[in-house]
C-alpha cells in the first residue's frame, strides 16, 4: 500500500536521503505532527554531531563575505496568511518556508502554531500522506512564468492527487490563486492560496487536467481568467 515514510526520519535527519525521497518525506512531514515532534529531537542530535567538528576558517573568508554581503540584496520576510482558509478548508497554508530545511532545523516550535488545526485536518492529512506514500505515486512539476512552482503527486490506487504550490509571487491586492480540476463536465474548484499552498483532490480518475487561475479573494465558482498554469493529469 504505502512505503513507510516514517522509516525515513533518521536518514532524513542525517541528510542521507536522495533528493526525491527528501521531498516526499518533507511533504509527509507537513501532515504528521507526531513526526515533527520526534524529528525535532533527531535534528538536534544531528546538530550536536555537526557542532563537534569546528575548525578555524581561513582568514580571508571573513573579508570576502563582508565585501559580498555589502552588495547582495536580501529576501523579504514571508507573511503567512491564514485568512485564505475561509470557505476552502482544502487550502492549507503551507508552513514550510521556502527552504523546508529551515522548518526542519528550527524544529518543532514552528509547527506547533498550527497544532490547533491539526485535529480538524487529520483525516485530510492522512489522505495526503496516503497519496505521497502510495506505491504507484507519480509526480509532475511545473515552474510558473511568473516565478514559483507547483508539484503534483497522483496515485491511481488512491484515486487522489496532492498539489503543492510554492513561492509564487504574491497576487495583486484582493486576488488569490485558485486551483481547478477539469474533467468532462468542466472545472471544479479545489481551493485557493496566496503564495504557497497544498491541497488534496479526490476523484482524479476522470480528470483531464489541473489548472491554476488568478481570482478575486474568496475564490470564484468558475474560472474568470485564463490559467497561468495547466498540468495534464
Amino acid at each position: 500500500m504505502t512505503i513507510d515514510l516514517h522509516s525515513l526520519m533518521a536518514p532524513y535527519a542525517l541528510d542521507a536521503l536522495e533528493p526525491d525521497e527528501r521531498e516526499r518525506f518533507e511533504a509527509h512531514l507537513d501532515q504528521c505532527v507526531d513526526c515533527q515532534l520526534e524529528l525535532g529531537g533527531f535534528m538536534a542530535t544531528a546538530i550536536r554531531l555537526g557542532d563537534a567538528a569546528s575548525h578555524t576558517p581561513p582568514s580571508g573568508l571573513r573579508d570576502r563575505l563582508l565585501a559580498e554581503v555589502s552588495v547582495t540584496p536580501q529576501q523579504r520576510p514571508i507573511v503567512t496568511s491564514l485568512s485564505e482558509r475561509r470557505g476552502l478548508r482544502h487550502a492549507l497554508p503551507r508552513l514550510a518556508v521556502a527552504a523546508a530545511v529551515l522548518v526542519a532545523a528550527v524544529g518543532v516550535g514552528g509547527f506547533l502554531v498550527e497544532r490547533d488545526h491539526a485535529q480538524d485536518e487529520r483525516r485530510e492529512n492522512l489522505a495526503i500522506s496516503a497519496v505521497i506514500g502510495a506505491d504507484d505515486v507519480q509526480s509532475v512539476a511545473q515552474t510558473f512564468d511568473v516565478g514559483g512552482s507547483v508539484k503534483m503527486y497522483m496515485s491511481a490506487a488512491e484515486d487522489s492527487a496532492v498539489i503543492f504550490a510554492k513561492d509564487l509571487p504574491r497576487p495583486e491586492d484582493g486576488k488569490v490563486y485558485q486551483v481547478w480540476m477539469i474533467d468532462g463536465s468542466g472545472p471544479t474548484s479545489q481551493g485557493t492560496f496566496e503564495t504557497d499552498g497544498q491541497m488534496i483532490m479526490e476523484g482524479v480518475a476522470g480528470a483531464d487536467r489541473v489548472a491554476v487561475t488568478v481570482e478575486p479573494k474568496g475564490g470564484s465558482d468558475q474560472p474568470t481568467s485564463p490559467p497561468i498554469a495547466t498540468i495534464t493529469v
Binding site: 544531528a46 546538530i47 563575505l65 554581503v69 547582495t72 520576510p77 529551515l102 514552528g110
Partner: peptide, 29 residues
Amino acid sequence: AQEVYIQVWQSAARFDPARGNAKSWLLTL
C-alpha cells in the same frame, strides 16, 4: 561555507526566532 553565509544573509529575514535556534539553522544549512 561562503555559500552558506551568503544564503544566511539573503534569507535571514525569513528566520523566525520564535521558531528556533540560529545555530541549529546555520549548521543544518
